[in-house]
Design a protein around this nucleic acid. Sequence first.
RNA 1: UCCUCCUUAGCUCAGUUGGUUAGAGCACAUGACUGUUAAUCAUGGGGUCCUAGGUUCAAGCCCUAGAGGGGGAGCCA
Length: 483
Amino acid sequence: MAFNKRVKIKTILDHHPIGTEVTLMGWVRTKRSNKNVSFIALNDGSIITNYQVVADPNLISEEILKKCTTGACLKITGKIVESQGAGQSSELNAEIIEVLGEADPEKYPLQPKKHSLEFLREIAHLRMRTNTFGAVFRVRHALAFAVNKYFNDKGFFYIHTPIITASDAEGAGETFKVTTLDLHKLPKTDDGRIDFKQDFFERETNLTVSGQLEGELAAMALAEIYTFGPTFRAENSNTTRHLAEFWMIEPEMAFYDAEDNQNLAEDFLKYVIRYALENCAEDLKFLDQRAAEEESAKPADQRSELGLIEKLKFVVDNDFVRLTYTEAIDILRNSNPNKKKKFTYLIESWGTDLQSEHERYLVEKHFKKPVILTDYPKEIKSFYMRQNEDGKTVAAMDILFPGIGEIVGGSQREERLDLLTKRMEEMNIPQEEMWWYLDTRRFGATPHAGFGLGFERMILFVTGMSNIRDVIAFPRTPGNAEF
RNA sequence: UCCUCCUUAGCUCAGUUGGUUAGAGCACAUGACUGUUAAUCAUGGGGUCCUAGGUUCAAGCCCUAGAGGGGGAGCCA
């Protein structure tokens, strides 16, 4: 006989089935008791709202009620009735309570009170049971769904690029090695190097740092594709915006130039944010209040002018600013912090890369909206980016978001074989092992473009969380692979 | 990797110029209470003051090293 006859709390709140008999299953958040009645706040994950269960000690034994402690899992059957209390319109009068799983209150670490995010990170296996993380992961799901829906509705094809790769030439960062060799007895070649011919793939392999190059191959056949998968970078980065394992969305489109690419990226970002606003109202309302509390703890000059939901609506309703690197340098060179030498790195000449402080100034102080920066000097960008007519810049774009920094990096790709191989030579990119990539420029090459978007950075922006470790269930960072 | 701050009860924190038995709120337990909303009230239990050295008559407090964590920078998404 099937076990699951539960009704979800979200369903009850949507339909208010007063008078019907239902079974709820979920976890106790709090219990309040007096001599005549106990109130259990139950959460089943379907929605952030807890549902009130009323237990009459004449119907439910003291032995059972004693086990209904914070964190315990219950199966409750009873009748939905109008609530006599003020905090909710309906509630469940319990007739049968079955304790599916107890939670020793002396040992269960989550309490009905506010916990610090740092503490909850240490108990990541339980933190999804809190309001904040429940909200974050429901929003994360909605955003992932919206990503697939957006591209599917536009006729893009979802390509699964490999996780294990042999190419190390993207230049996107340090890689994690993949091997089945015995690390204590590494086979050596005659000249003393590790003999990867004896390894599983008979060559050196690593976890992917980007699906872009493979994505380009697919775009040369299916025209408009995207990837959405895990990405691995072994950089020793310890910041609130970096993970060693993160999820990246990488659309790649044949017949798109740089401007088409920018249009797609802006439309895409607005779509998924709008999707969250329309489909995660309760969770975003909670996160909005949470963010407001965090803001009120900050000194007045560091507080943001807009609340979380206001900020999301603002991004959806306003055009992003588009300007070239050269224009940005002019603005920065003449900015107050540059003139008054407030920047740690002063802007003096064209050609240097922008630092975080410069990006933040442009986005948060000067324009106060998302910025698409284009046409960077070729020296500070990747080999595959299309070279502009001026001979100095490439058709790159970075999209900068307030509070996050770079959320998207992309470009029109260099489709001209001679220019591409020349650039690879200049940048010491080995061409032999990239023969398959260069083949796309030999056979049926066309203008094409694409971008990469860090999924967790998008979640950070939409949820208003400030540390990237709090928007992925089990974060992987230097020195941390628990759970 | 660099800079910087932090580590005291299950959690969040206080702890005076180094000085007797290390405190509070919340949580938890017990009891009270005729419907509560993070209920309230009373009582109670709970400590390797991150670790290892050192200075001192005396160290939670000072010094050295290490571990763990936060924030910032670089790298990037």
